[in-house]
Amino acid sequence: MRAFVEFSQQVLSGAALGCIYALIALGFVLIYKATEVVNFAQGELMMLGAFLGYTFISLFGLPFWLGLPLAVVCMAGIGGLLDRIVVRPIVGQPVFAIIMVTLGMGFVARSGASLVPAWGVDTHVFATPFTGKVASIGPLVASHDQLAIMTTTAVLVAVLFLFFRYTRIGIAIQAASQNQLAAYYVGIPVKTICSLVWGLSAAVAAVAGILLAPVVLVHANMGFIGLKAFPAAVLGGFGSIPGAIAGGLIIGVVESLAGFYLPEGFKDVAAYVVLLLVLAIRPQGLFGEGLRKKV
């Protein structure tokens, strides 16, 4: 019984972390699907989101429920501008050029953040209304931060699902991601849609950053968590939204279990071991789409 409780406890905290991976992976997937660009700066977008939240809430003293949406909206704007100014001019260039640009954006974001006087290279404590409270569910314990992460992720994913399924813009985004040329021919302004997707993806990253901030503290290098979210996206089958969520959760849980049961050091490689195993058996990823675009 005790062993089972321990196991469940690890799964619970792994799932909470996994939600963060899932949200970042979601950002990767959104941008990849719509524009076929892999945005390696996704983790840095999350970092900037966390810093903006920290600035609005801790430095400016705005209430959490005002500071959060403000930071999210700002990040959405930054995401859209990045697409417009940095990414769009190089679309159509070789893939490695685009990859280098997104990697470069990550470097710039990291150094840029540490140059901001109030941000710097220090770590900052960022308190949310959830910080420090603990709930017990039967024999299990979960911090309110963890519960907030899981609830928000679930809500966000549900909202995105409805958005893509039922709204005019949502369907247009899907259409543009499946066949850009045809999207132009039915009157969808594909370039605007791309900027919109970058904005959406940066907004999701900002939510992830603000949720994660109380758990890991805010600092300029927190974006490296994107390196764990990347295998989550690949695991799910790059390009699948449910896949990104499932991939994130799996990586989170595996990491948490590995950290608890296996010797020191396994925690950080666990994600990649799982990834390699899954890809060896199912190269297209868990939710990879069997349908290919017809030429």
Partner: peptide, 26 residues
């Protein structure tokens, strides 16, 4: 001015109905 391109170019992973809705984007 609407254009039906050569080779059909439907949106493969949208349903028939969603394809039509996408066509009414404007």
């Amino acid at each position: 001015l609407a254009h039906v391109p050569e080779g059909r170019e439907v949106f493969p992973l949208l349903t028939v109905r969603e394809n039509l809705i996408a066509g009414a984007f404007v």
